[in-house]
């Protein structure tokens, strides 16, 4: 049973963060396509803004790899008890939940930033900061998940 919990944790981290990023990058992509339709020279700038909410999916994948590498699926020792399995599940949850929510919220900031760049291309640096601020919380969740997984005996 412990193995089931541990795999569930790894799967949720990859799944929720990945779903969040997929929706978010798609949403920002629509805005980016609109901006580039009107001004193709904006491509490189809006591409970066589109990709920003994609990082949560990568963080989720990273957590899933780390967890799977410790529970006997891609290395490490198999999970011995339900308690340990639940510890892995709990350790993966910060990345799973915060990854999903932060990606969706970051996409809104990205779409707004793309609108800013469309009107004022010279303000790209400032525009990038707004969605990047949301990234802070995804990174915090990533750190907590890594520390928690590494702390499981």
């Amino acid at each position: 049973m412990g193995m089931v919990y541990a795999v569930l944790g790894a799967a949720l981290a990859a799944l929720l963060a990945g779903v969040g990023s997929a929706i978010a990058v798609g949403r920002a992509g629509q805005a980016a396509a609109g901006a580039v339709t009107e001004d193709p020279s904006l491509f490189s700038k809006v591409l970066i803004l589109q990709l920003l909410p994609g990082t949560q999916g990568i963080y989720g994948l990273l957590i899933a790899f780390i967890a799977l590498g410790r529970i006997g699926i891609m290395g490490g020792d198999p999970v011995s008890s339900a308690t340990v399995g639940l510890q892995y599940l709990a350790a993966c949850l910060p990345m799973a939940v915060v990854g999903l929510i932060s990606a969706l919220q970051q996409s809104k900031a990205s779409v707004a930033a793309i609108a800013l760049v469309t009107k004022k291309p010279d303000q790209f640096g400032k525009a990038m900061i707004f969605p990047a601020m949301v990234e802070t919380y995804a990174i915090l969740a990533l750190l907590i998940s890594i520390l928690a997984i590494n702390g499981i005996k």
Binding site: R27, Q30, A31, A32, A33, G34, A35, T37, E38, D39, V111, I114, A115, T118, K119
Partner: peptide
């Protein structure tokens, strides 16, 4: 709402005119 993101991005550009 999401179906208007592309449209609004294009409107943003036209608003400058």
């Amino acid at each position: 709402d999401k179906n208007y993101i592309y449209a609004v991005a294009r409107v943003r550009s036209h608003e400058m005119k």
